[in-house]
Structure formats: structure tokens, C-alpha cells
Simulated scan of single mutants.
Amino acid sequence: MTAANPKAVILLSGGLDSSTVLAIAKSQGYDCYCLSLDYHQRHNVELQAAQRVAAALGAAEHKTVQLDLSLFGGSALTDNAIAVPEQETQGIPVTYVPARNTIMLSLSLAWAEVLQARDIFIGVNALDYSGYPDCRGEYVKAFQQMANLATKAAVEGQTITVHAPLIDMTKADIIRTGHALGVDYGLTVSCYQADGQGAACGVCDSCRFRKAGFIQAGVADPTLYRNASSGE
């Protein structure tokens, strides 16, 4: 009789980074329980991508939590009155969603306790990103410390580890890693203003980082763009 694989909760948005993290966790022998958040994001077509990716990579289970952050607004991703920037901006951009990663990690922590899982994976990255404060290594460490203070499982000796395997990788490195693990990036949606078919604008921050990553990685870009010239 063989021992069961360890369980892990994977935060899965349906974008390039989180899909790569799912593939990494699978390659490390985890049974992966994927968690997505429908926060009434402008680009909620990413949730369909998350379903596709979870199925393609053999997730043990995939849940989508409904939590309407548009009630607060404060971000171009949750308030249609705030435009998504199509040029580089200074400082933390308006696509930052207040407390989003903290909310998502908290939900993943709750599910991990129920599953008796000791591992959580998140696709944050501190290099090719938009300067979001909740994408830094020190934030991930701080959340892990909090998780091990605040949970019954940890108090009883089952400590939680928050894994951020992409934290110090370039977008090109992420793409190379996922490509080697068989990730079909054509299933993913990264664009902040993707249309209902998942076609990308090609000009928002997320699209710019993604396009440059494929070029630098030397991997063919399977992204569907609304305008053919956007993918050049």
C-alpha cells in the first residue's frame, strides 16, 4: 500500500503565472486543490480559463468562491469607471486590487485546514510585475507566519507552508518552466481587459509582460489578441 500524495491548495486565476504554479505543484507530487476567486473582476473570463487549466493539468478539485469586491471598488479591475492603463505608469498602478492576495490566501488557508493540507501555492512574482505590494517575498513570509499563529492545525503541530515558486523568476523563466512541464498557455487568460472570448488587448501591463516573456523565452506565443498587430 502506497502513501497518499500530500494535498496542496493552489490559487488559480487562470493566468499564465498561476497555471505554471499548478504545473510545478503537480510535478512535485501534490494532489492539487485549485481555488479561484470571482471578485467581479473586469476580466472575469479568466475564470473560464481557470476551469480549463485545472482540468487539463489534472487538479483533484477546483472551487470558485464568489466575493464581490466591486462593492468597494478602488481598482481598475473592479470599477468600470476607472480605465485600465494602456501605457506604463509610475508607482503602484490602478490595476492593484486592495487586499486581493490577502483575501485569496485567507480563503486558501481555510480550505487547507479543512483538507488537512499543509501547503499553499501562489503565483506572485517580484520581478516582472506591476509593483503590487502583495507580490513581494516579505509579504508571503509574513502571511505564512500569521497562518501559523492563527490556525488550529498549526497550533496542534501541522504547520502551513506558503510556496511562491515564481517569486524571483523573470517572465521568460516562468514560461520556460511551464513549457517544459507541458502547460498549454493557449488555455490561459492574462489580459486585464480581455473580451468575452478571452481575446487580449495587447497593451495593458499584463499583456506587455506576457508578450515580452514569450519573446525572451523563445517560445511561440499562443495568446489570442483582438488585433493581429497587438501580438507583434
Results as ranks from 00 to 15, higher is better:
2 T>V: 11
4 A>V: 09
6 P>E: 14
13 S>C: 12
16 L>C: 09
18 S>E: 05
19 S>I: 06
19 S>T: 05
20 T>C: 14
22 L>W: 08
24 I>V: 15
25 A>F: 08
25 A>R: 03
29 G>I: 02
30 Y>P: 05
30 Y>H: 14
30 Y>M: 08
34 C>K: 07
39 Y>L: 09
39 Y>H: 11
40 H>I: 06
43 H>A: 04
48 Q>K: 14
49 A>D: 10
51 Q>L: 12
52 R>I: 01
53 V>P: 09
54 A>W: 09
56 A>K: 10
59 A>I: 02
61 E>L: 02
61 E>A: 15
63 K>A: 15
69 L>C: 11
70 S>E: 01
70 S>W: 15
71 L>S: 10
72 F>Y: 12
75 S>P: 09
77 L>S: 09
77 L>D: 07
84 V>E: 00
85 P>D: 10
85 P>H: 12
90 Q>N: 11
91 G>Y: 11
94 V>M: 05
95 T>R: 06
95 T>H: 04
95 T>F: 01
96 Y>G: 02
99 A>V: 14
101 N>D: 13
103 I>W: 02
103 I>N: 04
107 L>A: 13
107 L>F: 10
107 L>K: 04
108 S>C: 14
110 A>S: 15
111 W>M: 13
116 Q>A: 10
117 A>R: 00
117 A>H: 00
117 A>L: 04
120 I>Y: 06
122 I>L: 07
123 G>C: 06
130 S>P: 01
131 G>D: 07
132 Y>D: 05
136 R>G: 04
138 E>C: 03
139 Y>E: 01
139 Y>Q: 05
144 Q>I: 06
146 M>V: 15
146 M>C: 14
148 N>Y: 08
149 L>E: 13
151 T>M: 00
151 T>Q: 01
154 A>S: 15
154 A>H: 02
155 V>S: 13
156 E>Y: 12
156 E>L: 15
165 P>R: 05
166 L>A: 12
167 I>R: 01
171 K>T: 00
174 I>E: 13
176 R>Y: 06
179 H>S: 12
179 H>Y: 12
182 G>W: 10
182 G>S: 11
182 G>E: 03
183 V>W: 08
189 V>I: 15
190 S>Y: 07
194 A>C: 04
195 D>H: 10
196 G>V: 05
197 Q>R: 15
197 Q>K: 15
198 G>S: 09
200 A>T: 03
203 V>D: 00
209 F>P: 00
211 K>M: 15
212 A>Y: 03
213 G>P: 00
214 F>T: 04
216 Q>T: 07
218 G>W: 02
218 G>Q: 07
219 V>K: 00
219 V>M: 07
221 D>F: 14
221 D>M: 13
223 T>S: 14
226 R>C: 08
227 N>R: 14
229 S>R: 08
229 S>M: 03
229 S>C: 03
